[in-house]
Design a binder for these strands. Structure first.
Lengths: 164, 164
DNA sequence: ATGCCTTGTCAGGCTGTCTGACCAGGCGAA
DNA sequence: TTCGCCTGGTCAGACAGCCTGACAAGGCAT
């Protein structure tokens, strides 16, 4: 037990740990979501559910937020439309464009999803320590803000704002 | 600034933040790796590089560690073998099996990769605070240990061990 | 009113993974 | 021994999820 120097410092890369934590949370999420009756929602659909809001958004905007091509997001939107979660309607201000919005069913699903995420985080907080989880969230928000501010517009306004 | 109750508590899901952090680290990793001359190593190859060690491992063992099918890992091994990073040789103890081990080139690549991961973590530590990063690592290790102990065998022996 | 930009779609392709079927070799029980 | 079953690895085929390229319809500025 003599704490000698570890020779090559073979620690598990942080990416591996992040990946495991992420995967575990997502697995929990998918299970819960299915249990709530949304078994037909797949991970890919997240790129729309995460960002769609308001009275109608353009595909172009969604794809920019999601960091994916219009074609890819368009396919997801098609799929969600077939399943009745979103609907397209013509943009009254621009006849080229179509707007995408959640249906009533879609809004329920989105709310359920966000609720599940909150519940999981709550459970993890109880399990691993509320303050530790708050710390990790704060740090991750800071990292996200630094690395991909466009993907987390919600972070544009918090306390950090006046820190720079 | 009256801290009233937030109505639907619309916080960004932790998974999103974890994903951004993970992606950012991996992007940094890939950039560095290419810069070190290993531009032909793709993310998929990680499922082998992460786990292969010693004097030869079976495909079955690698696939179990990686949590993937034998076929998928086999394809990756084929690819790495063509590129000269690993080699197969018959298991002297079991004529059905072949053992997989790193070539000299593969060992260099693996060491370089682990080094880059360590360097990135070091840089992030300086950037976001060494103690905060240590905290997040400790928490993530705990989570990983709880959620996927088989994927992080290195964690089987640390200080946590006598805590239970 | 003409030429360029934007919006969305169609078509095709690639990567990474999976399932199913199979052969060759090992191993235990009759 | 030898027969039936298990195990290690491979072949073949499929599919999800993403991409790039090409395009038609519509807006917009000179």
């Amino acid at each position: 037990m003599t704490a000698a120097q570890e020779p090559p410092l073979k620690q598990v890369p942080l990416t591996g740990l992040l990946g495991i934590a992420l995967e575990a949370m997502l697995a929990e999420f998918r299970g819960q979501l299915e249990q709530e009756g949304y078994g037909d929602i797949r991970p890919t659909h997240g790129c729309v559910f995460r960002f769609v809001h308001g009275d109608g958004m353009r595909l172009t905007d969604l794809s920019a937020l999601a960091g994916m091509t219009k074609q890819s997001v368009g396919e997801v939107v098609d799929d969600l439309a077939e399943r009745g979660y979103v609907e397209r309607f013509p943009d009254p201000d621009d006849r080229r464009a179509k707007l995408i919005r959640l249906t009533a069913k879609g809004k329920e699903a989105q709310a359920t999803g966000f609720g599940i995420f909150a519940a999981i985080e709550q459970r993890w907080a109880e399990r691993f320590g509320p303050d530790r989880l708050a710390d990790i969230r704060a740090l991750l928000e800071e990292i996200a803000h630094a690395e991909a501010p466009e993907a987390v517009p919600e972070l544009a306004r918090p306390a950090l704002a006046h820190a720079s």
